[in-house]
């Protein structure tokens, strides 16, 4: 997925992290940890034998500009898809690099955000943040590719997942920017006042969602995952107007580590609190 022509190297291996980052990470390596986990999450991570190392982040400001599109045709806008994917990849990879520098086994609670600023027309900032963690036992829990795993699981979900004998491998995503054809005037007038399916739209949305999910699954396969948990599909028009939508499918790829499920039998309760 790398097809842009430009002056600077962008979507191959990311550049060195900014100087500020190295300084900050050095402080963390000396034993201080930072985390945006709540106290509950912090305690639960410790329960499964992990310790937070530090708050890690990666970002990339990407120009997500133009792609010509045919007004009357439903199609994927591949250039934009690439751009959205590359930008998030860059942000995620930088975040992983920070985690790797800290010697982390993985990153939990990853959040992917997109920011728009007035001064960057057609540009958006893609940010990935999370808390890097490391197993206290010293045994490496990195993923199949030898990199720290990423996951958007909360501390509670991470604890529960570990109890079922699974471990996250990576946050996987698939994206597809789709343009939905505008209906011709004739077609619009013809169906006005009727309750009918709009085959154009149906087909377009189907295809777009499938593309996004398939790409996400491909990433999971690459990681050798046995499954994906917490899948969600987000649909946003960003700055392109309502006929162009980005379908983003996100989930956490997991792998089974043992057959032993240590989930204690849950106590059933009826809560009498508000």
């Amino acid at each position: 997925m790398s097809d842009t022509t430009d002056m600077s190297d962008t979507n191959d291996t990311p550049q060195d992290l900014p100087e500020g980052a190295s300084r900050r990470l050095a402080e963390l390596e000396h034993g201080l940890f930072t985390s945006d986990l709540s106290v509950n999450e912090f305690l639960l991570i410790k329960e499964v034998g992990f310790h937070p190392l530090g708050f890690v982040m990666g970002s990339s400001i990407y120009h997500t500009g133009i792609q010509t599109r045919k007004w009357g045709q439903s199609q994927e806008l591949t250039k934009l898809t690439e751009a959205m994917y590359n930008a998030r990849e860059l942000a995620m990879t930088r975040m992983e690099e920070e985690a790797a520098e800290l010697g982390a086994d993985g990153v939990v609670g990853v959040r992917l955000d997109v920011n728009y600023y007035e001064w960057g027309k057609d540009a958006a900032e893609f940010i990935a943040v999370g808390t890097a963690v490391k197993a206290e036992s010293g045994v490496s829990h990195r993923n199949k590719l030898g990199k720290p795993f990423t996951s958007d699981l909360s501390g509670q979900d991470f604890w529960t997942l570990m109890q079922t004998g699974h471990i996250p491998q990576g946050l996987v995503m698939g994206t597809c920017v789709y343009h939905i054809a505008h209906r011709g005037l004739g077609a619009t007038l013809g169906s006005a006042g009727q309750n009918v399916e709009l085959p154009n739209f149906t087909q377009a949305l189907y295809e777009a969602r499938e593309l996004a999910m398939t790409r996400m699954q491909d990433e999971a396969t690459e990681l050798g995952a046995s499954g994906i948990v917490g899948v969600r599909l987000e649909e946003k028009s960003h700055q392109w107007g309502s006929h162009t939508i980005e379908f983003l499918s996100l989930g956490t790829a997991v792998v089974k580590t043992s057959d032993e499920v240590t989930l204690p039998k849950p106590t059933t309760i009826i809560s009498l609190d508000n």
């Binding site: 600077s8 962008t10 550049q15 970002s59 400001i61 930088r94």
Partner: peptide, 13 residues
């Protein structure tokens, strides 16, 4: 073109 804006990225980062 869809490119990373390295100046901006560097500054914000």
């Amino acid at each position: 073109q869809n490119v990373e804006l390295t100046n901006f990225t560097e500054a914000m980062y």
